[in-house]
C-alpha cells in the first residue's frame, strides 16, 4: 500500500475493499475449517483401512472400501431405494406444497390461525414424526389399519412395516408430511411477491385462470421453485433419520437407503473407511445432480447462486 503515490486515498480504498471480507470472514472461516477438514479427512479415510477399533493400524488399502461398496450384494437395492425415496418424496412435497401455497394465497377469515397450524410440521423433529408414523402404521395396534378396515378399503390388517415396498412407502409418506411446509412457505412468499398489476392487465386481455397461472404466475415464482427443489433434493437424499427410526431399513434392507446403510455400517462395525467411500459416492451423485439440474433449468444463467 505504501508503494502508491496517493497513499491516503488508496488506503481508504483498500479499507473499502477489505470491508466485505471482514463481514463474511467469521462465517466463511468457521465453515471452511469445520466442513473442509472433515470432508478432506473422510475422502482420505475412504482410501484407507480405517477402523475405530484399530486406529494404530491405519493403512492404504488399494480401493478396497470402494470394491466392497460396489460389490455389496445389496448395493443395487440401496441405490434403487434411494432414488425412489428422493424422487417420490420431492415430487410429493413440491406438488402438495404448491397446492397449499395456492390455497393460502388470498384473504380469508382465520387465515393467521390456519397458517400457523398447517405449517407446524416444519417445527417438528424427524425423530418424533418417525415414531408417530411407526406407531400409526403398526400392523396390529395401528390406527391406519383400523380406519382402512372400517372404511372397507381393506379386509384384513396389513403389515405395513414388514412388507417389502410398503415399508419404504411409509418412510416416504412421513418425509412428505414433514416437508410440505417448507415448500408451502417458500412458494407462498414468492406468490405474494407477484405484483398485482400484471394480473389486471391479463384480466383485461381476457386470460383464463389456468392461462394466467401458467403464463404469468409460474414464470414469476420459477426461481424460488428451482432453488427449493434443489435444496430439498439434497437434504432428502442425504437424510436417513426417518429410515432408521421408522423401519430400521427393514424388512431385510427393503427400505434401506445409501445414507442409512452408511450410518448403520459406520456405527455398528466402526469401519469408517467404508463409510467414507459411501459418503464420497453420495457427494459425487449430488454434485452431478446439482450441475445437471441447474443446467436444465438454466438457473446458472438467470441467478447469482
Amino acid at each position: 500500500m505504501t508503494k502508491n503515490k496517493s497513499g491516503g486515498k488508496l488506503s481508504l480504498q483498500t479499507k473499502r475493499k477489505l470491508q466485505p471480507y471482514l463481514y463474511i470472514a467469521p462465517v466463511l472461516i468457521l465453515l471452511l475449517i469445520m466442513f473442509g477438514y472433515p470432508l478432506i479427512k473422510s475422502i482420505v479415510m475412504s482410501f484407507q483401512d480405517y477402523k475405530l477399533s484399530r486406529l494404530d493400524k491405519v493403512s492404504w488399502n488399494n480401493f478396497q472400501n470402494y470394491i466392497s461398496m460396489f460389490t455389496d450384494k445389496s448395493f443395487l437395492l440401496l441405490l434403487k431405494n434411494s432414488l425412489v425415496y428422493v424422487v417420490v418424496a420431492v415430487i410429493g412435497q413440491f406438488l402438495l406444497g404448491l397446492g397449499l401455497a395456492l390455497g393460502l394465497n388470498g384473504k380469508f377469515r382465520g387465515r393467521g390461525i390456519y397458517q400457523s397450524i398447517v405449517f407446524l410440521p416444519w417445527a417438528f423433529s424427524a425423530f418424533v414424526v418417525g415414531l408417530l408414523f411407526r406407531w400409526s402404521f403398526n400392523g396390529e395396534y395401528g390406527v391406519v389399519n383400523d380406519v382402512l378396515l372400517k372404511l372397507g378399503i381393506i379386509h384384513e390388517k396389513i403389515s405395513w412395516l414388514g412388507t417389502p415396498g410398503l415399508s419404504l412407502a411409509v418412510v416416504i409418506m412421513a418425509m412428505i408430511w414433514i416437508g410440505i411446509p417448507f415448500f408451502g412457505i417458500n412458494i407462498l412468499a414468492a406468490l405474494q411477491s407477484v405484483p398485482e398489476d400484471i394480473y389486471e392487465a391479463a384480466d383485461m386481455d381476457g386470460c383464463g385462470t389456468f392461462r394466467k397461472f401458467f403464463t404469468l404466475t409460474l414464470p414469476y415464482i420459477k426461481p424460488t421453485i428451482i432453488m427449493t427443489i434443489l435444496l430439498r433434493t439434497i437434504w432428502i437424499f442425504n437424510s436417513f433419520d426417518l429410515v432408521v427410526i421408522v423401519t430400521e431399513g427393514g424388512p431385510a434392507n427393503y427400505s434401506q437407503t445409501l445414507p442409512s446403510y452408511m450410518y448403520t455400517q459406520a456405527f455398528s462395525s466402526y469401519d469408517f473407511g467404508l463409510a467414507g467411500a459411501f459418503g464420497v459416492l453420495l457427494m459425487v451423485i449430488l454434485t452431478l445432480y446439482a450441475l445437471i439440474f441447474l443446467k436444465i433449468t438454466q438457473y446458472d444463467k438467470a441467478g447469482d447462486f
Binding site: 469445520m34 466442513f35 477438514y37 472433515p38 470432508l39 479427512k41 473422510s42 479415510m45 435444496l231 439434497i234 437434504w235 442425504n238 445414507p259 452408511m262 450410518y263 459406520a266 469408517f272 463409510a275 467414507g276 459411501f278 459418503g279 453420495l282 457427494m283 449430488l286 454434485t287 446439482a290
Partner: peptide, 11 residues
C-alpha cells in the same frame, strides 16, 4: 449442504 452429516460427524 451436500456433505452427508455422517462424513462430518466421524472425523
Amino acid at each position: 449442504q451436500m456433505i452427508p452429516s455422517i462424513l462430518v460427524i466421524i472425523p
